[in-house]
């Protein structure tokens, strides 16, 4: 059709801040790449590479993965020292105990302490423990984060409100290959005797990437 389907507004595929009325008159025009997605999917279904049902199921499985899974792992490690030891020794096997599969990747769990803070980045693309935390936030994939997290990580942490003392070693992990990383945050003070469920509710996604600490 016309050539304007190739023009692209980079912001346009981000979800709008407003709700569409239930009966919007004209649905938004699909972008060139949205059309490409439909074409590839329909052609592959027509060639029986997979079925429409497989796509639907894969999307559902993706929706089911979210940071609450990682939070459950962290809370278990905080309350069960034997599990914590297994998690640090072999993350892939330990999370399997809770029903989480890492697919072809291996999970490496790095533990924050009073003297060591871990931060995860993927400078080359956007490697992320998606089997455990779901899809990564946009900022994790941004040029600013990928460029600066290795060279000025303390400045990046400050932007997330995390200030580390000079007596704390900051260790950045550049996720370049076959490992996937999960930060085991420090258990906040004042949570003694809390149940695993109550602890898990404290653990947000960002502290498992290492840009924040976990707070009560």
């Amino acid at each position: 059709m016309s050539s304007d389907v190739h023009t692209h507004d980079p912001a346009h595929d981000h979800r709008h801040g407003h709700a569409h009325p239930p009966h919007a008159e004209a649905p938004e025009r699909l972008s060139y790449y949205q059309v490409m997605e439909i074409a590839v999917r329909e052609l592959l279904i027509a060639k029986s590479v997979f079925a429409a049902e497989d796509v639907r199921r894969a999307v559902e499985a993706m929706d089911a993965r979210d940071p609450a899974q990682g939070a459950r792992v962290v809370a278990r490690a905080w309350t069960d020292p034997a599990f914590r030891a297994r998690l640090l020794a072999d993350g892939t096997a330990a999370v399997r105990e809770l029903g989480y599969e890492m697919a072809t990747f291996r999970l490496l769990v790095v533990e924050n302490t009073a003297k060591l803070h871990n931060l995860i980045v993927c400078t080359l693309c956007s490697c992320y423990p998606r089997m455990l935390l779901g899809l990564p936030p946009d900022w994790y994939k941004s040029r600013a984060y990928r460029s600066r997290a290795v060279r000025e990580p303390r400045a990046v942490l400050k932007e997330f409100g995390t200030v580390l003392g000079d007596d704390v070693e900051l260790r950045v992990h550049d996720s370049t290959a076959d490992m996937r990383y999960l930060v085991l945050p420090e258990r906040p003070a004042g949570t003694e005797g809390w149940s695993e469920e109550r602890l898990a509710a404290l653990v947000g996604r960002d502290c498992m990437i290492g840009v924040t600490r976990c707070h009560v």
Partner: peptide
């Protein structure tokens, strides 16, 4: 791009 200069991380 690791180590290249860039602006603040937009928490988008």
């Amino acid at each position: 791009m690791g180590g290249l200069p860039a602006g603040p991380v937009a928490r988008q």
